[in-house]
Amino acid sequence: MNVITFNLYVVRHGQTYFNIYNRLQGWSNSPLTDKGIAGAEKTADKLANTHFAAAYCSDTTRAMHTAKIILDGNKADSVKEPTISNYLREEFYGYYEGNDMDQTWYVAGAPHGLPTFKDIVTKYSIGKAKDFLKEADPFHQAESNEEYWKRWDQGLDLIRNDKNIHDGDNVLLISHGNAVLSLVERFGEGKYDVTERPANGSLTKMEVSDNQVKITDYNVQ
């Protein structure tokens, strides 16, 4: 069987109201702001002449809205609609969905002497931050690192198994801040700073094959 390699253009969704309010929005949602719509349109302009053989996004409205803006602005005869999958959602923050981001990471990290998300990631990893949050969740429903990757690996396999994607093709994926960071931590070979979140509308590029993923660009604005 021939192994194909394709280019995955991973775009973080446009700015939302929860982004402004510094609130966690994993499986919860808030609409794109006017700035978020304008930012998505700017990204659409940059990608207008890139042909996408397939497009994917999570089933959150912020991702679907961003995908529509980018695909509607495409002039390269790309696919018109994204494939929508809950496998591609942001991390689930459980009890802390919608909470202030800094307060939540304090609750998760402070028992370990690490009061900020950056502190946790610097000493351990984004994966450990997920595990600390699950531990802090009184319902223990926030996703652990293992649970998160079990879901996301299904999402990556969904894309890999798309019969419309051929060797050398470009594929669009509208994603989320922590999801992008998690991909870059796992596949970036330590070359990128994952203590800082990617900007809304930014582009991260990956080369994906059946058995390998390589980050080639991160947080391009």
Rank of each mutant, 00 (worst) to 15 (best):
N74H: 05
K75A: 08
K75H: 13
K80I: 01
P82H: 09
Y87P: 01
E90A: 14
F92H: 13
F92C: 11
F92S: 12
G94N: 10
Y96I: 01
N99V: 07
N99Q: 04
N99H: 15
M101I: 12
T104E: 04
V107E: 14
G113Y: 13
G113P: 14
T116E: 03
F117Q: 11
D119N: 15
I120H: 13
T122C: 01
T122Y: 01
K123T: 05
I126V: 13
K128M: 15
K128W: 04
A129Y: 08
F132C: 00
K134Q: 15
E135D: 11
A136T: 15
D137K: 10
D137F: 12
P138W: 08
H140K: 14
Q141F: 02
Q141L: 13
Q141S: 05
A142E: 04
S144Q: 09
E146W: 00
E147C: 10
R151L: 11
W152P: 00
W152G: 00
G155Y: 10
G155A: 11
L156R: 08
D157Y: 00
I159M: 05
R160T: 00
D162Q: 08
K163N: 12
K163F: 05
I165G: 04
H166E: 01
H166F: 02
V171T: 09
L172D: 06
A179S: 15
S182E: 10
V184S: 08
V184C: 03
D193H: 05
R197N: 07
A199F: 07
A199S: 07
N200T: 08
G201A: 01
S202L: 03
S202K: 04
